[in-house]
Design a protein around this nucleic acid. Structure first.
Length: 880
DNA sequence: CTACTCACG
DNA sequence: ACGTACGTGAGTAGT
């Protein structure tokens, strides 16, 4: 029979190592309450690895006990120079204990003794009992315990890699036996444990002495054999130190431990307990590593009983006034093109599923759906997908994704399983049921139906909790009156889509392609070789090695060839301008010609998807394709000629807020001077220029002064730093500082606002927009200067950017109501952060020109007016 | 899958 | 002494 295996872990030293291994990640590993988890995470990984490697039958994790030990009694200063462990580590120790327990392992500490002594004692008992022992530690001292039956694994580079110390390995590496380690330490002393050895004796000398005399005792017995020397004198003088230090270094193997080998049998982890712990600690990586719950077993167990709906049994659907859970499931992300794979409808009493989405448009079911209030996960996705089936859903009264996002914008996964987990509810992940990437596929019906049924159950179960949480965070109105209605508006915009005039775009593309080829040839000629112009790596080699241009900036991986760098090199070589020109057209060609044409759906239109639950500020984002970064300046602006109305005789109409963020700042800061500037409709950048340049009349403001003042205004909104401003407008840091000082002198309440936001973030851990949208800033207390400063700038910027986002969302909802109420044919198509784009019959343009600005500038009542500018024309290009 | 670059507000 | 503007998405290289 194989020998029994024992695993002994030096918990205190491993925890310490684990903490510092991920010290630079300290801020990435925090839960929502700000508790740090980096050491827990690294410790957990170590446990998983070592258990898999050793396959132990018994495990004990030993810890030091706080307070002194018998060693302190022997020598006052033992470990006397140790700094107190940082609080970020101390707070994790109870969590590590809990984790060890959940792993099914014993842990133990003993008053007056160190973890080492517990380990030494058990290792000896185990050897006597014929067991094989592995010791894991971050402390080399334990290698003295190595024998043929005891291997000491010392952590190396963090805690992931271990170095195995056996007697043979120690002989090879140090030329001593494990027991001689204590003699070595007696002679050398130990600076980290703060005990002295013999003066001037370091590792080299000590090893030489031990090679000759074997032990401290024998060395002193034969001291007279040494030739007179300074070293000999030191040995004589420090004799007491040497013997005391040897004793301090000696690990006890007979400590009075109250735990025995029989108490530490290992039976394996309690996965659910670990899942609970990791969930509480927001440790997603650790959670992901846990074995997925057996899908078949849990599906069978946890799934509510369900009825498979057919057109023969639709009458089974009960009439109810309570909200109904609904989910129309698709495997692909882009619901404008994805095929439905099934749906679920559930009330508190009954659950109905089907893999045939066309059933939804069968009249009794369509009518039933339209007549019931729905609770869903991602309203917009369900609305658009239903619309593609010709189905109009009933009023959506709750959206778990939107709610979760509002409660904490970090909690915005598209996987309901993840969101459920974030709210302490267990639901399998889509990724586990459907697979990911190439392996993603429709599961067999029992598994599909079970998953759908569980999702519906989760929706009904989570709703009251999320609703209560929204109320507690004062976000009920934001949810009910803003985001949820907005989802319907966005759905209509996405469904409408915007036609792309492909021939027009293709013609532009041909011209750009031609000029690309010309530039390419020219550049290869100038460089004297051909290379891949699209590769920053190859381009860097050509510019900075072959052509020896001065290196302005480097990236992590090599030379930077970004515009800001090339701009500075323009005069050094004609090749630079050609590269810049090439870059411009290459970008236009690949992203805006090829890219946009690829995104056109069979109806000839582009149907972007707005991500309503992604940004940390409350803005929307746009994907597949991104319609919020269509070129607006330079030659690229021509692309906008290709965006045209749906019908002949129709036009494109656009309105945008003028300086909405600065107006929001003027409002929330309460700054009298800034408010006055807006109330009198002054040019805000010129106004700022007068102040920071100390001018008395607007006439004195030169265009360049205005440009710099404009950059300063932007900088303020971003949570300014003199460095950033200096870099942006190419002035010295000192000048930038003078600008900022001048700025705050002129707008003193803006400075107060900045200070106030940082203080609020520190106090409550989050900042809010005008509409109580919340953003948590865990890193506001970070010890890492950069992370903390970033959090501070975010605290200043988010209420501004986020409130502006709130305002345009209100305007969008009201504008949709207005279009409906006035029975206009015009439709809202796009939103680009501070701008709304419509299409409509030419005859309605005048009406839009009257209506849209009115709705937009009255969306919210601020202390300063909101200004809106409108344009319209035959294409998006002309609506500017 | 990450890094770089560049398009937008 | 340090290294910094805020918020996004997409295409291309290169591991």
């Amino acid at each position: 029979m194989a020998k029994e295996k024992l695993l002994l872990i030096d918990g205190s030293s491993v925890a310490f190592r684990a903490f510092y291994a991920l010290y630079n990640q300290l801020d990435r590993f925090t839960n929502s309450e700000g508790l740090h988890t980096n050491a827990v995470f690294a410790f957990n990984n170590m446990l998983d690895n070592i258990v898999a490697k050793v396959k132990p039958d018994r495990i004990l994790v030993a810890f030091d006990k706080s307070g002194g030990t018998f060693r302190t009694k022997m020598f006052d200063d033992y470990k006397g120079n140790r700094d107190k462990a940082p609080s970020e580590l101390l707070e994790q120790l109870p969590l590590i204990h809990e984790m060890i327990q959940d792993h099914g392992m014993a842990h133990y500490a003993l008053q007056d003794y160190e973890a080492d002594d517990i380990i030494g004692t058990l290792a000896k008992q185990a050897e006597a009992a014929g067991m094989v022992t592995t010791i894991v530690t971050g402390d080399r001292d334990l290698t003295q315990l190595a024998t043929d039956a005891v291997t000491v694994q010392v952590t190396k580079k963090g805690v992931a890699e271990l170095e195995a110390y056996t007697p043979a390995y120690m002989q090879e590496k140090l030329g001593i036996t494990p027991r001689q380690l204590i003699d070595l330490k007696g002679l050398m002393g130990d600076t980290s444990d703060n005990y002295p050895g013999v003066t001037k004796v370091g590792e080299k000398t000590a090893l030489k002495l031990l090679a000759q005399f074997d032990s401290i005792e024998n060395l002193y017995a034969h001291l007279d054999e040494l030739k007179p020397s300074k070293m000999k004198e030191n040995l004589i003088n420090d004799r007491d130190n040497a013997f005391m230090s040897k004793k301090l270094a000696t690990i006890l193997q007979d400590a009075p431990i109250a735990i025995g080998l029989d108490d530490i049998r290992y039976t394996g982890p309690d996965i659910e307990a670990l899942r609970g712990l990791f969930t509480r600690l927001d440790m997603r990586q650790a959670l992901a590593k846990l074995p997925a719950p057996d899908q078949d077993a849990t599906a069978a167990e946890d799934a509510p009983t369900y009825t498979v709906l057919t057109d023969a049994n639709l009458a089974l659907l009960p009439t109810t006034s309570a909200p109904v859970a609904f989910e129309l499931e698709m495997l692909e992300e882009n619901y404008h093109v994805a095929e439905p794979i099934g749906f679920v409808i559930a009330t508190a009493e009954a659950t109905f599923v089907s893999s045939d989405a066309t059933l939804l448009s069968v009249k009794p079911l369509a009518d039933w759906l339209a007549a019931h209030e729905l609770t869903v996960f991602d309203a917009k996705r369900n609305l658009v997908a239903a619309s593609r089936l010709g189905v109009t859903l009933g009023p959506v009264v709750f959206d778990a994704l939107l709610a979760s996002y509002l409660l904490n914008p970090d909690q915005n996964s598209n996987d309901f399983g993840q969101i459920a987990q974030d709210h302490d509810y267990r639901l399998p992940f889509d990724a586990d049921v459907y697979g990911t990437g190439a392996k993603r596929k429709v599961p067999d019906e029992p598994n599909l139906f079970a998953h759908l049924a569980m999702k519906a159950k989760a929706l009904l179960a989570l709703r009251p909790h999320l609703t209560a949480d929204l109320e507690e965070q004062d976000e009920t109105k934001l949810f009910t009156d803003l985001e949820l209605p907005l989802a319907l508006v966005l759905a209509r915009m996405e469904i409408a889509g915007i036609p792309l005039d492909q021939p027009v775009l293709a013609k532009m593309g041909d011209e750009w392609t031609a000029s690309m080829h010309v530039l390419e040839e020219k550049i290869y000629g100038e460089a004297g070789l051909t290379f891949n112009l699209n590769s920053p790596k190859q381009l860097g080699e050509v510019l900075f090695e072959k052509l020896k241009l001065p290196v302005i900036k480097k990236t992590k991986t090599g030379y930077s060839t970004a515009v800001e760098v090339l701009e500075q090199l323009k005069d050094a070589s004609p090749i630079v301008q050609d590269i810049l020109d090439y870059r411009t057209v290459a970008k236009l060609q690949s992203t805006y010609v090829t890219g946009l044409i690829k995104a056109v759906l069979p109806d000839g239109k582009i149907h972007t998807r707005y991500l309503q639950t992604l940004t940390q500020t409350g803005r929307l984002s746009s994907v597949d394709p991104n319609m919020q970064n269509i070129p607006a300046r330079g030659v690229g602006k021509q692309v906008r000629h290709a965006f045209v109305p749906s019908h002949p005789g129709w036009q494109i109409f656009s309105s945008d807020y003028s300086q909405i963020e600065l107006r929001v700042l003027a409002h929330i800061s309460g700054d009298a001077n800034m408010q006055e500037a807006f109330k009198e409709d002054r040019d805000i950048h010129a106004n700022t220029a007068m102040k920071i340049f100390g001018l008395t009349s607007p006439d004195q403001v030169t265009p360049d002064m205005r440009r710099q003042a404009k950059a300063t205004n932007f900088g303020i909104v971003y949570g300014i730093s003199d460095f950033g401003l200096a870099k942006n407008i190419g002035i010295t840091r000192k000048q930038a500082k003078a600008f900022i000082d001048g700025y705050f002198e002129q707008y003193p309440q803006v400075r107060d606002y900045m200070d106030r936001m940082v203080a609020i973030a520190r106090e409550q851990g989050y900042v809010e927009t005008l509409f109580h949208r919340r953003r948590y800033l865990a890193q506001i207390h970070s010890k890492n200067f950069n992370l903390r400063q970033f959090a501070e700038r975010t605290a200043m910027n988010t209420p501004i950017q986020g409130s502006a986002a709130d305002i345009i969302k209100v305007a969008m909802i009201r504008m949709q109501q207005m279009l409906d109420a006035n029975h206009l044919q015009s439709r809202m198509l796009l939103q680009v952060h501070d701008e709304l784009i419509f299409e409509g019959p030419a005859e309605e343009m005048a009406k839009l020109a009257e209506l849209v600005p009115k709705v937009m500038d009255s969306a919210v009542e601020l202390a300063v007016p909101l200004k809106v500018e409108s344009h319209y024309g035959d294409t998006w290009f002309d609506a500017k």
